[in-house]
Nucleic acid binder design. Structure first.
Lengths: 104, 104
DNA sequence: TAAAAGTATTATTATATCTTAATATTACAA
DNA sequence: TTGTAATATTAAGATATAATAATACTTTTA
């Protein structure tokens, strides 16, 4: 009977629901084996797309699209370095959650 | 150049990839605002479907389908108690990850 | 400035997910 | 044993996601 967050005023419901949406968006971004692999890989050192691509053995556009989703979700950021772009994980909640899930 | 998990032998690649798939499955199960809300709600006390349904203000079948996905993913378990079924979160990784993401 | 390397975008097809009404199941009570 | 409450399942249409070939963009080097 108790414990559910969405039972207060309409304002609370709106505010709370936004938080669920925000966090669900982040989770959706990493809820894919390739993207999870990319994030975990990036956690052990910055890396460019070509390296990721070779490791995962996927077409370049596939990797680029996954990278793009992670970037849109605010989970990774890229810094251009000449021809390459180096990506790193910038969302602390996601960093901790991934470490937790993999026992790293 | 370093840090990506899928660069060793074929066997390692297979084994590692399974882990990414397994964890991605769990994440996908909670990567939805309603399901995230259900899980977080259940974390503050067991609860039957009717209560959840009233709190989320969704059709009964919608809630039931979300419950079903969480159950299939091994994240929650239900125990029947007369007419009702009481659900609780049983996956410790998910429990900790959700707490972490919500700062609970 | 032309070629090449690294990366992003677009377009397309296939597949999966979401929502919900309708229907079924299960357990209790009259 | 009939009715009703709590929950699950099915079916269907709408929407979203996935993979990838083709193409475009950006930066460096010759």
């Amino acid at each position: 009977m108790e414990g559910f967050p969405l039972k207060n005023s309409a304002i609370d419901i709106e505010k709370d629901f936004k938080k669920y949406e925000t966090i669900a968006e982040k989770l959706k971004a990493i809820a894919h084996p390739y993207r999870l692999c990319i994030v975990r890989g990036l956690l052990s050192g910055e890396c460019n797309v070509t390296t990721i691509q070779e490791c995962l053995n996927l077409p370049q556009s596939t990797v680029s699209q996954h990278i793009s989703k992670l970037k849109s979700a605010g989970i990774i950021e890229g810094k251009r370095n000449g021809l390459e772009i180096c990506y790193r994980v910038v969302d602390n909640d996601i960093i901790n959650a991934v470490k937790l899930l993999f026992n790293d």
